[in-house]
Amino acid sequence: MAKQNLSVADDPDEGELRYRAPALEKGLDIVELLATSPRPMPPKQISEHLNRSVSELFRMIAVLEHRGYVAMAENQSGYELTNKLFSLGMSRGVSKNLLDYAIPAMRALSDEILQATHIVVTSDDQVVVIGQMDAPAAPSFHIRVGYRQDIVESTAGVVLYAYQNPLSKSAWRKALQPTVSASDWTRFEQQAIHAREKGVLVAQSAYSESITDIACPVFSDRGLIGAIIIPYIRSKLSLSVESCAQALVETCASLSNALGAAQHQGA
């Protein structure tokens, strides 16, 4: 019988892994480290962060690169994650179903208002863009699929927080509040109240002073599932912010109905 490359922990504490796979854990350590790094990392830097030798991690990085999970940055400054893990996650279950319905709706909305649209979901303490649609024949702000932003710094994050049930909102508050200043948290909470009251949030983008974010929640039969955001840029061809906000509300309501949300979901 082939030998299993697994070791059994002696007297593991409650919640501790009983079985260990050291090679797999090294690979996952690399993936998780690159996922949190704001810039590419060379092997030496990776080894220093993980407290392992470069030679110990060399084969792990080579395999991850061969399988398409990491890649050398264009400027050759180090390794960075590709979108492969993200794509795998989007190809299944709730996320795939959401995109199947959302992309046509976003395309129709962008055609109507001549603005780009993006759909985001939460991932830990961040929102992540899972789909986007550029504006036709008009200036627009393009955000790549996979882009992440802290929940408390994102207009869509405010909306997603606003529509959590009380238990989930309490958990979010416990996790997020310590990461920001008291004044920023007060602003975040006030915006969430406003978003809940209006059903849509219009706010200055944290990314650029020339962009006004317009965000609205999307529901499915399982409850809150994501949010669509318009990074609004004023131009000679653009509709008013108010017109875009109304069109977004109508699109999100129609999309939510298509996804099986109960009538007046989140009210």
Rank of each mutant, 00 (worst) to 15 (best):
residue 2 A to C: 03
residue 4 Q to G: 01
residue 7 S to L: 12
residue 12 P to F: 11
residue 16 E to L: 13
residue 20 R to G: 01
residue 22 P to W: 09
residue 24 L to H: 11
residue 25 E to K: 00
residue 29 D to F: 00
residue 37 S to M: 07
residue 45 Q to H: 10
residue 53 S to V: 04
residue 54 V to Y: 08
residue 76 Q to E: 13
residue 80 E to Q: 15
residue 86 F to E: 11
residue 90 M to L: 15
residue 94 V to R: 13
residue 95 S to A: 06
residue 100 D to K: 11
residue 111 D to N: 15
residue 124 D to L: 06
residue 128 V to F: 01
residue 130 I to H: 10
residue 139 P to W: 04
residue 139 P to V: 05
residue 140 S to Q: 04
residue 143 I to C: 02
residue 149 Q to G: 05
residue 153 E to A: 13
residue 155 T to R: 04
residue 156 A to R: 07
residue 176 L to E: 11
residue 189 E to N: 05
residue 191 Q to F: 09
residue 191 Q to C: 07
residue 193 I to H: 13
residue 193 I to L: 13
residue 193 I to D: 14
residue 202 V to Q: 12
residue 204 Q to P: 02
residue 206 A to E: 14
residue 207 Y to M: 14
residue 212 T to H: 07
residue 213 D to G: 06
residue 213 D to N: 15
residue 217 P to L: 05
residue 220 S to Q: 00
residue 220 S to A: 06
residue 222 R to M: 11
residue 228 I to K: 08
residue 234 R to M: 11
residue 236 K to S: 15
residue 237 L to C: 03
residue 237 L to G: 09
residue 248 L to I: 06
residue 249 V to T: 15
residue 249 V to L: 13
residue 250 E to C: 02
residue 251 T to H: 01
residue 251 T to M: 11
residue 253 A to T: 12
residue 259 L to R: 02
